[in-house]
Amino acid sequence: MGRFRNKSRKPFVKPIGGKAPTVDHVTGDKIPKSFVFSRGKLPGPLKQLQMDLRKLMLPYTALKLKETKRNNLRDFVTLASGMHVTHFLILSKTDSAPYLRVALMKHGPTLTFKIHKYSLAADIAQSQLRPRCPLELFKTPPLIVLSGFGTGEQHLKLTTNIFQTIFPAIDINTVKLSSCQRIVLLNYDKETKLIDFRHYSIRLQPVGVSRRIRKFVQNHQVPDLRSLQDVSDFLTKAGYGSESEADDEAATVNLSSDIGRVNRASTRSAVKLQEIGPRMTLQLVKIEQGLCAGDVLFNEYGNVNAKKSENEEENEQESDEEMDRDEQEVEEEQEQETETS
């Protein structure tokens, strides 16, 4: 017997963060939440990049969002409205390159980035001698740092505003240092017009404490001293009597509160950043006024003062054809909402 399928099937998603609040109880601001999904068929590595981006956006994202080929952009907009979602991150792939769109719900704007290069979180971990990525890192949202965007150009100002609102704002007077576990860094190079996207974990190490003592306090384990003549040998053994890395004065901070068992208040600790991925090299190619639709506010290939090669023109045409299939539907829906209001 044949199976009957529901042609109007919508994407399935569990509630973001369970009973997560929608408003920050300290600042009173609306907590930004996100959907990360794709448009069109993605190859295996890009599917993994999509999962890495979902993990990066935790805890205020839908980690187990399930999509089908029949889902269109309107399905996600309808679902997002009831879940207080504020941002869309949309991956797509053309014959020339993959693209990432960052859209603000519900009426835009939409930023379109061309992904020149990317590395998955697994690739980053494999390249490290001691990879570190505990699950506790993703219980709080990352901090975001933007560098090089202050050129005064209008499209970069708009890009800065979108990325500054993609994660919850912090109040430096009330923020808990223990909640600052990750950082997202975006660095803009005005010469190449490329954006380096990096994701790091933050860890603190007390200055002037040997590695053996630090590990002993952190792990709650009694060390094996049978091969030593005296307990002082444990502290002064070659290679462990001092830190293996020199303490950089510029990378040390005075703590205002206790963090863990070894980083105590009023002591100096060294700030260590370790990349956990994903890593991307992006180029802003277009800004649209609406949600994946509307007037084009910026187009990298549309600058009359710049000379475009034939390949650039072909890439732009492919991008417009394959990435904007749902624009007409969304534009019509927005027009209907305007007439109703």
Rank of each mutant, 00 (worst) to 15 (best):
Q128A: 06
L73Q: 02
L104E: 15
Y118L: 06
V253S: 03
P142L: 06
K157N: 09
I172C: 13
L137G: 03
S227D: 07
H220I: 13
Q218A: 12
R226L: 11
N187C: 15
H87A: 03
I213W: 06
H155W: 03
G241N: 07
S147F: 13
V209E: 02
A20E: 15
E288R: 09
L53S: 00
I162E: 01
Y188G: 02
E136V: 11
L282F: 01
E333T: 08
L56I: 07
M51N: 09
E245C: 11
L58M: 12
M83H: 07
S244Y: 13
V184L: 12
E318Q: 11
P168F: 01
I90R: 00
P43N: 10
T94C: 04
F88E: 00
F37Q: 02
F113V: 03
S210Q: 07
K286Y: 04
K10C: 07
A250V: 12
D196I: 07
V23W: 10
L53C: 05
T236C: 10
Q328P: 08
A270M: 04
K14F: 10
V222Y: 09
M1W: 15
Y188L: 05
E322K: 08
R211E: 15
L42Y: 02
I16H: 00
F298I: 04
F149I: 10
P141H: 04
S119N: 10
M57V: 08
R5K: 15
D258A: 04
S309K: 12
E153W: 08
F234S: 04
P134S: 15
E337A: 08
S232V: 14
F216I: 09
L53N: 02
R132H: 10
K10H: 10
I162R: 00
T267C: 04
K286Q: 06
L158G: 07
T267A: 06
P15F: 07
I287K: 01
F138P: 02
V262R: 02
Y240R: 15
Q218M: 10
G294I: 02
E153I: 14
L255K: 03
E321I: 13
Q336S: 12
Q221Y: 08
K272G: 05
F88T: 01
D295K: 10
Y301T: 08
V262C: 07
R182W: 01
G302Y: 04
G150H: 12
L89A: 03
G150R: 08
F197T: 01
F163Q: 06
V36P: 00
Q328C: 14
V184A: 13
A121Q: 01
R261Y: 13
K176D: 05
E322T: 07
S34L: 02
V77F: 04
D24V: 05
Q289Y: 09
G28L: 08
K237V: 12
K307G: 10
V304S: 12
N219H: 10
T110G: 05
V175K: 03
S179D: 09
S179V: 09
R261V: 14
K30V: 15
H220D: 13
Q317N: 12
